[in-house]
Amino acid sequence: MSLRRDVHSAFDQITPSMGGLPERVVQTVLSEGATRRRREKMLFRIRAPLSLVAVLLLIVLVAAVFVGGRIVQDWNALHKSSPAGQSNQSQLAELEARPLQLPVLKAATECNTGPWNSDGTVGSGPLSIYGGLGPRTSWGTYWNNVFYTDQQIAGPIVVRVRDVVNNVNVVFVGKYAAGPVVGTDTLNGTRVQQHAELVLYANNAALVTVNPPSKPHAFVWGFTVGVPNDSTGSTGWQVDGMGFSEVFLSC
């Protein structure tokens, strides 16, 4: 017995008569064809209204994006107004016009960090500062610092920093950085502009209150300061606000 005959025999044994299967198949196809035609007719009928609905939805979407954008913009303007948008531009101009009162040192060895305060941070008040080392780039070294105060602040506060030995500019990047753009750098893969000063307001302080030293503060501003490679690392900080001027050294 050949394999072909074996296979025929084996499968004929389990293949029952078709019992009208071809007719059933044909009926199924014909029925499907009719259903399909009905569906196509229905689709044709609703195609035009659907297009209209799609266009209307698109218009509504564009309008929603526009209106939403305006709402977000207004909200930001109300709650996080940028320094440039503040009404007290004249106060800012006045503070920026104040001359720097930073000491001039002959060598970095003459620099002593201070004045220290009772919190163990630097600054005689009303602002105090602490921080830690941030990212390094080919341009220099960045520090992630925090200014804080427990006093009520009115108007802007302008912070300017210089190397007290060789007068090299120290810069600010990111949030609160303001004033003239003095350079650019790539920080954590992002191109950033370096600004000459930091401008703080009571209403743009962080909403959270953080330590040190393990107590909340009324106003807290986290910021990033950049010290170029050609700096001696001896920096003088001048903090000018309405009714006060504060100077401290960080070495």
Binding site: I14, T15, P16, M18, V25, V26, V29, L30, G33
Partner: peptide, 27 residues
Amino acid sequence: SERSFTDLLAPLVQPAYRLACAMLHDA
């Protein structure tokens, strides 16, 4: 044309059914 299609399909149902029975062992 469903009719022309079903005319062509009808003779193919038997070999198709035999193939399916042989592949599935389940009528």
